[in-house]
Simulated scan of single mutants.
Amino acid sequence: MPNRDYIQSVAYDLIKKYDTRDPFEICKATGVEVFYADLGNLKGMYKYLKKNRFAVINEKLDSYTKKLVCAHELGHDILHRDLAKQVCLQEFILYDMKSRPEYEANLFASEILIPDDEIFTYAHDGYDIEQIAKTLYTDINLVALKMAAMNSRGYQFINVMDTKSDFLRK
């Protein structure tokens, strides 16, 4: 199983190689086909089938959540392709921290979508985690996950809250 450093390194390499943090662009460049469908309560899913890689995103999600789900599914493609050969990875809850593959896909999404320097700058300027999330127009749980990962790399953010597993339920 990949560790935090590996996930951060892979995400950084993709960002650098394709000169973008847009998960839709990275999917296109790496051969992951993205489709939209009415998935009911399902946010998205990833499947590897006969050397074809698919991310399906619920068409009823808002544009921010579609981007987040795309980054998450891209994480499954990069980190869990062998697992996806056996089962379809489905997301009802994006921040499900009880499952290691889901945690890793969430961490990957945070690395793709949020630059370290932005977190560091806002934290250095005295912003708390909620203010950082609002400023970056992202979810507080994604910021918390990113800051915890940055702490593991030597940053010293204090009061990084626990991420919630059910914030995307509606």
Rank of each mutant, 00 (worst) to 15 (best):
T20E: 05
L83W: 08
K60M: 05
T135A: 14
L168C: 09
E33D: 09
S9G: 10
S63T: 11
M1I: 09
R100P: 01
C70S: 08
A105W: 00
R153P: 01
K28E: 14
D117K: 12
L74E: 06
Y95V: 05
K16Y: 11
A149D: 11
L83S: 12
D62I: 07
A84T: 02
K66S: 04
L94S: 13
K51V: 06
S165H: 07
I140W: 09
L83Y: 12
L61N: 06
M97H: 09
I15G: 03
D5A: 08
D5T: 11
Q8S: 13
D62V: 07
C27A: 11
L136C: 03
C88D: 08
K98V: 02
A29Y: 07
I158N: 08
H124I: 02
Y103I: 03
L61H: 07
Y64A: 08
Y137L: 10
E25R: 14
F157Q: 04
I119A: 08
L168P: 00
D38A: 04
R169E: 12
S9Q: 14
K47R: 15
V32I: 09
Q86E: 15
V10A: 15
I140H: 11
L94N: 14
A105H: 02
S99K: 14
T121S: 10
Q131I: 01
V160W: 01
D128K: 11
A84V: 01
F35E: 12
D22T: 08
D13C: 05
S110T: 08
D19R: 13
K51Y: 11
I140F: 07
Y137H: 15
Y122E: 06
E33P: 00
V160H: 00
D19Q: 13
E25C: 05
N159P: 00
T20Y: 07
I140G: 02
Y122R: 12
T20N: 10
I158L: 08
A133D: 09
D96R: 14
K47I: 14
Y103W: 15
F54T: 12
A11K: 04
M97G: 09
A123G: 03
D128L: 05
L42G: 04
H76D: 03
T163H: 08
R153C: 07
N52Q: 13
V32A: 04
L113A: 01
R169S: 09
A144D: 08
K16H: 10
K66Y: 06
Y6C: 02
L89V: 06
